[in-house]
Structure formats: C-alpha cells, structure tokens
Design a protein around this nucleic acid. Sequence first.
DNA 1: CATCTCATGTGACACTGTCAACTATGCTCA
DNA 2: TGAGCATAGTTGACAGTGTCACATGAGATG
Lengths: 193, 193
Amino acid sequence: MVTRAEAAAATRSALVRAASELLDEGGPDAVTLRAVGARAGVSRGAPYGHFEDKQHLLTALAIDAWNSVADEVEQLRADLDATASARLERGLLTLIGVGRRQPHLYALMFSTPVGGDPEAAAAATRVENEFLILVADLVGESDARRYGALLMSSAHGIAGLELSGHLAKEKWTVDGDQVVRLLVDAVRSGVSG
Amino acid sequence: MVTRAEAAAATRSALVRAASELLDEGGPDAVTLRAVGARAGVSRGAPYGHFEDKQHLLTALAIDAWNSVADEVEQLRADLDATASARLERGLLTLIGVGRRQPHLYALMFSTPVGGDPEAAAAATRVENEFLILVADLVGESDARRYGALLMSSAHGIAGLELSGHLAKEKWTVDGDQVVRLLVDAVRSGVSG
DNA sequence: CATCTCATGTGACACTGTCAACTATGCTCA
DNA sequence: TGAGCATAGTTGACAGTGTCACATGAGATG
C-alpha cells in the first residue's frame, strides 16, 4: 500500500511527465489538461489539485528543463582535459541541443515569465552561474559577466534561429555548430586583442 | 460609392491593423477573431473571406513586420557618413528595437513558419540580404555570410533574452546595447586577427 | 431591369480552461 | 477498533474559442 502523500506526489510527477511528452510529440496545442489527465491516468480536473492553473503546470516543466541544463553544464566543468574554449563551446551547445531535441520545450523555457516564480528564477540563475564559470575560464573573472551576456545571448539566438528555420545552411553557408565555434574564436581574439 | 474590390481591400487591411493593435495591447491571447472583427467593424466570420484561417491572418502581420524591418535597415545603408561598425550596430539594434517596442509582434515574427508561405520567406530574406550588405562592409564579401549568421543570431538572442527577462543588468552588468557593441568589436578583431 | 457573384452575417458545433459540488479513501485520535 | 476528518480525485456546468455550412443582401454585369 502507498501512503496518500506518496500517491499524490506520484500523480503530480505523472502529470508533469505526461505534459512533457505531449509537448514533445504534438507541440503546445497538444498539451490539453484533458489530454494530460488522460495520459497520467486521472481525470481532466485532477491537475487543479496540484497546480494553480495550466500555466503553473507548464512552469513546472520549464523549471525541470532549466535544472536539467544546469546539471549538464555543471558536469562539463569537471572535464579538465579539454581546453576552456572546448568546454565553453560544449556548454553553449548543451543549451542549443535542447532546442534541437525538444524545440517546444525550449520555446517554453524562454516564454515562461521568470519574474513570477522564484523556483523558476532560481533554476535559470543556476544555468547562468554555470555558464559564468565556463566563461571566466576563458576570458578571466573581470570580463566574465560582459562576455557571458554576449555568449549566452548568441547561443540563445542560434537556437532560436535554428528553431524557426532562419539559420538555413544554404543561405549562410554555416550551421549552428560552426557559428558557435566562430563566436568563441571571436570572443577569444576580442578579449586578448 | 466604393467599388466592391476597394471595400474588400479596405476590410482586409482593417483586419490586419486591428489584429496588430490587439496583439500590441494585450498579447496573443487578446487576438481573437471576434475581437479582431469587432475592432475592424465586421463580424467574427468576416476574416474567413480574406484569410484561410487565423494562422494566415497572423502570418500577414508577420510579413508586414519583416518588410518593415527590411525597409528600416535598407535606409540605414544610405548613411555613408557613419562607419561600417556604426551602421552595422544600428542595423542590429533595429531588429532588437522591434523586440523592445512590440514584443508580441517580435515573437510572432519568429514563430511564424517561414517554410510555408513564400511571401513570408521573401520578406525574411529581404532582411537577411540587407544585413549581409552591412556585414560585408565590415568584414568583406568573403566572410560576410559566416559572420552574418553569427551577428544575426546574436542580435536575435539579445532581443529574445531581453524579452524573456533573462538579460537583467544586475546579473550581467551590461545591457543589450552594450552587448551589441561588444559583439561587433569582437567580430572586427576576430576577422582581422 | 434581371441575374449573377461574392463579401459578409449568423447559427451551430466541438473543444478548451476553469470552477463548484460531490465522492471516496487514507489518515487521526479516542 | 471505529467514528470523524482531511483531501485527492471525479463530474457537471459554463463561458469563450476557432471553424464551417448556410443565409443574405448589395455591387457588378448583361
């Protein structure tokens, strides 16, 4: 037998998982409270016992995504064999990779109002701090924040343009990975020159 | 008296204008076909005489926005007093400016499937070509496409992070304008070094 | 004037998020 | 143990949405 708290927690995570799967499979329009409930094995009204409304359920998805990116970038830090440039490139590609593998989730991450939910803000801050460490390894502590803003913006832009189809290789002759390399090179020569 | 074609064209543009205003004022949720029709002085079903469905009406908004950006960047080209760097910076800030002044419209521009509508693709291509000219003035023809991809990605990323609140100055110590300057500087030293 | 054409209005439908009322089951305490 | 409580979950209802089929009426055409 399971305690009631366990059952409730299981339902909650089942709802989040169901919403995540539906988002990946069919985009935002497919994430209906009725569909989420059905996939989680509960009824359409059950989510209201765990989330204030639909937006808060989606925010829970975004929080998981931000934390997942933070975890991935954090692990990258341990690889001291790689150069600072290589580690940074891989970090940026981690974020871009979410956009490639889970485009709808990626869009959700950046359309979730970060000001409202403190947990969401904390998760996003984790990612930013992890990036700051990688950037500092390349350009030094004093310039890390300025170049961190540039690098994270650019990575986000690359992901966004790929996602919307505006970074087609026929037009620009380079793909996202090459742009990341170009970016890191430009920053490195910009900070040292 | 007005001819029937004139009246229809007037209705069509009134629908687009109404949708644009509603989008600016209340975000995507405020753009209902009923509200659009009401503001344009017609009924809720009228849009279907001019657009295949709601998505195509929104695409018309996006096309206007893309062309407007293209016009603005094109005019920039005429200012030969400014340096290539300054012109490029202003071009990038033109795009970012749309994100600042009309955030919902900006989001719509990049969430509109560019593959589907040839008119939308053409409008977006106009913007890209205008940017390519500005970039070529700075880094030369041969590198224009590579650095163009980087610069447009970064500008889009800056706009996106500003829009979602992830480019807060307290965290990064720089704002969007400064990141643009940093970006152009980095590219310039990257291409010459 | 008679007829056609087509932009627009209207009724209807399925679907959505949301809430109030209800049910049932695990939990608490005498 | 058994009575009462707290609460996760269900269900009915409602307003609002996009969309379509059909009705209507006025400009266009002969």
